[in-house]
Design a protein around this nucleic acid. Sequence first.
DNA 1: TTTTATGCATAATTTTCTTATGTATACAAA
DNA 2: TTTGTATACATAAGAAAATTATGCATAAAA
Lengths: 112, 112
Amino acid sequence: MKKSSLYKGCLEPILLRLLKDNGRMYGYQMTQMVKEITKGELNITEGALYPLLHKLEEQGVVETETEMNGNRMRKYYSLTKAGKKQTALAMDEMKAFMQSLEFIVNPKPVVG
Amino acid sequence: MKKSSLYKGCLEPILLRLLKDNGRMYGYQMTQMVKEITKGELNITEGALYPLLHKLEEQGVVETETEMNGNRMRKYYSLTKAGKKQTALAMDEMKAFMQSLEFIVNPKPVVG
DNA sequence: TTTTATGCATAATTTTCTTATGTATACAAA
DNA sequence: TTTGTATACATAAGAAAATTATGCATAAAA
């Protein structure tokens, strides 16, 4: 099993969290920030990132502004009002998920 | 996004952990234990469980003993020696994964 | 001038799961 | 008595979510 396969299914809430914390980000920036935060453990691939961002835009979760940085384009994403609501829900789910994982990976001994 | 999609990619290490803690288990028992531990949050489907157990057996990670309980069959799984090694590695990866998730979902404020 | 980094995008494929279906035993409820 | 629920296995078809590969383009470093 590939190490990073653990992250399968977590990409969307991770991106939502990044946008919630940082307000406005472009795709490449997200990949770099996650790489830094996870000390190189999670490298978001473009093939996963961009289609997901496009889907979130279609769903009205994020909105975009395209800007030029020198001669290079950057497409900035930020949460919509609906997106902020959805992010709050997603964070609750993440908490529950992480707690369940804790229970499984670090089970409390049954005190007899 | 479906709630349980967060668990994508985590099933294998979860099963390894169960076997590490409980020594010898049959498939249905695993589903029930996980359901209990996660307070109903994670319901492992048979379509995910059994093919994965079969794969682990092929790979020599687990070995099986089939027993009759009354008139009903139970196929007990336990970790092989190689499986125990792999489980140790998988648990290390899980720890790193969970810590990274913590960093993302609960970022430490930068103290200026 | 060739590699590495930045920055976007998409198609083909693979991995991993859900849903649906099948077989069979046991027990409780209607 | 037959209908639903629980136990217990198994597999096939399909969907979801990623990886890998490819493409375009600018910029800087080796």
